[in-house]
Design a binder for these strands. Structure first.
Lengths: 109, 109
DNA sequence: TTTATATATGTATAAATGCTCATATGTAGG
DNA sequence: CCTACATATGAGCATTTATACATATATAAA
């Protein structure tokens, strides 16, 4: 390549590890089921069976996704009798979610 | 399920279509190559060969990803001689990207 | 202790996704 | 017109991922 621009500097990107962390973060939201779960948890703590209703998929699938969200440190849980209640672990999550929805609204879709 | 919480209302989620749009949006950023491309485009318009340098993958792979970004209305391009220059189509993108990086910084990682 | 309910987990499967390789298209220069 | 360079595209392949099904675990109640 003969250098397509007169300018010959390339912006330093963030460190690779940081980029990979960000990618992991976006991946969390990049799935309908997980996003539905997180949106539902935005306001209330919910037990698994409620989440199943909201997500509209099998209990098994929900549990699998909840595990992922636990591993990613996105949700926390507390047990109470036979139930397990999940809630968001971090208020930043709300902001990140909100951001994209704002964007979509402003685009008028 | 016998109703795990006393509260019996479930938050209305956004409409399904809106959720799906958001998922599509997050998917765009949920890939290292695409995110690197977008980060590189944050400040400069760049031609494909420059993007190849930054992204660190084959020209073919970059072109494929650029096509996706075009289809998703994230980037625009202009041709100039043999080169094609790509740039971000929308300043909201920057905000959405910035958001996650802020989050990661604040978590002290 | 037996049974029912809530949740978790292992496994297999199907679909989506991103890459490479080969090749096509387009443009400029000789 | 022919060649070289920049970019785009099609096909095939390998990996990832989300789900369902079956089953395990845990807790409560009978």
């Amino acid at each position: 390549m003969e250098n397509c621009s007169g300018i010959n500097f390339i912006n330093k990107l963030p460190e690779r590890e940081m980029i990979l962390n960000a990618v992991e973060m976006y991946k969390i939201f990049a799935d309908e089921t997980r996003l539905r779960i997180l949106l539902a948890l935005l306001e209330n703590e919910l037990c698994v069976s409620k989440i199943v209703e909201v997500a509209g998929i099998s209990q098994s699938a929900v549990s699998h996704q909840l595990r992922i969200l636990k591993q990613m440190n996105i949700v926390k849980y507390r047990k109470q009798g036979k139930n397990v209640f999940y809630s968001l672990k971090d208020e930043h999550i709300e902001k990140i979610i909100g951001m994209v929805f704002e964007h979509l609204k402003e685009k008028g879709e």
